[in-house]
Amino acid sequence: MKEKRGIIIAGAIIGILSVLLVYFGNPRNMGACVACFIRDTAGALGLHRAEVVQYIRPEIIGMILGAFLISLGSKEFKVKGGSSPFLRLILGFVVMVGALMFLGCPLRMVLRLAGGDLNALVGLLGFAAGIFLGIQFLNKGFSLKRNYTQTTIEGYALPLISVGLLALAIISPAFIILSQKGPGSQHAPIYIALAAGLIIGVAAQKTRLCMVGGIRDLIMFKDTYLISGFIAIFVFTLIGNLILGYFKLGFAEQSIAHADGLWNFLGMALAGWASVLLGGCPLRQLILAGEGNVDSAITIMGMVVGAAFAHNFKLAASAQGPTANGKIAVIIGFVILGLISYFNIEKTMNFKVKGGVSVD
């Protein structure tokens, strides 16, 4: 229990911060959502034209910079990359397609569940199913191959871009697009959102917090270390929502959610399968990128492209439900994952690899 204390405390902090971010202006059940915030930031930069989801989210910037600064200070910053970069970009794209079908990343899934949104329970079942499917390929020897030491500037690139985005968020020049209505117009003050992101980045870096890793390790090794962090997030977010009156139990009329159970399940199943192949959920990819992992930075770029593509071509779901284009995209996503999973099995491997790919 002693070794779990740190990750439980980290989960408690993230849960409390998520509720406070809603209190200070973020949309309900969206105190923190990596997929949603990447989508909003892509929109603010003009990469898509969905008017209701365009805002540079300081939380994302803070998570990257928090992980970057704490890894530098603890001498854990290591610049590595070169592990199937283009496939990782594609997998990042697929993760975003699945997440935007569900309307949230794994972190938001937990936050939605703690707010009483039972659609998130359906999403959780799908997410676990997708991870279970991915594990079957890990056990057969799936691998995206090893990574290699890279030049220092490779590792500094994404943190420097994050600083540039922060400057744009503060200065807000005319070419930055900001939503005047909808979720993009609902946000906590910049300094509060940035501070919360920095804290989340530090906490997640020190504890290796990862929803995909938690469910994967629970299934493969009966290890509850990582999943205990997300249980703590759920518990403390639930308490905060009950105190502040944000809790609303049910399927209907939930904040930025739809009640189509089949596509909530399939969207998160797609995101779960792709994430387990990548070795971590969207939050974990941000943290790894902050630590100097160039492969994770490329995955994030894939998510940015996926977010832009999803809204430009009407793949993303909305409160009214999934689109026809989105359903087709999810099905194609499963086919893509099947091909990537099958053709990256190392035939000579005859032992079980924990996680299949590099997580740390």
Rank of each mutant, 00 (worst) to 15 (best):
I70M: 05
N264T: 11
Q186N: 08
L87T: 12
N344A: 10
A195F: 14
C36K: 00
A157Y: 13
G292K: 03
M109S: 06
A44N: 10
M268L: 15
K222C: 01
F313D: 01
Y55F: 10
M220A: 12
V212K: 02
N147F: 10
V79H: 06
Y148C: 05
V53R: 03
G326T: 06
Y191C: 00
G92H: 05
A257Q: 13
R284Y: 02
N139E: 14
K145H: 10
M303A: 06
I56V: 10
Q150I: 01
G290D: 00
A307Y: 01
T41S: 15
P159H: 11
S318H: 05
S84V: 03
L270D: 08
E346H: 13
F102M: 09
R284I: 01
K140A: 15
A269L: 06
C210L: 07
A169Q: 09
L118E: 11
G245M: 09
A204F: 06
V122M: 09
K206Q: 14
D117L: 10
A32P: 00
F221N: 13
A114L: 07
F234S: 11
D295L: 13
G81M: 10
I199M: 04
K352W: 14
M96R: 00
T237K: 07
I287R: 03
Q180W: 02
L249P: 02
A297S: 15
T299Y: 08
A129S: 15
A128F: 11
A232S: 15
S255I: 03
N241Q: 10
G134P: 03
L168V: 04
I215C: 05
H258P: 02
I13C: 02
G15F: 07
T348A: 13
A174C: 00
L166C: 03
Q254T: 03
I176S: 04
A252C: 00
G141H: 09
M101K: 01
M96V: 09
I70T: 11
I161W: 05
I131S: 10
T149L: 14
R57C: 04
M268N: 13
D217I: 01
K4Q: 14
L121N: 06
L178D: 03
R112L: 12
A120D: 00
K2D: 07
W263G: 04
I243D: 07
I256G: 01
G197W: 05
S296N: 05
R146V: 10
E253D: 15
G272W: 12
S172W: 00
V305N: 02
G66A: 10
G279I: 08
G116H: 04
K75S: 15
L270A: 09
Q136D: 00
F265W: 09
G290E: 00
P159N: 11
S172Q: 15
K4L: 14
V79F: 09
E291Y: 01
L278M: 12
P106V: 10
E154A: 14
T323L: 06
L144V: 10
S84T: 08
L218D: 01
R112Y: 10
G306E: 08
S162L: 05
N241P: 09
K4Y: 15
F68K: 09
G164W: 03
L226V: 01
M303Y: 09
E59A: 14
L118Y: 15
L244H: 12
G141P: 05
A203S: 13
S162M: 15
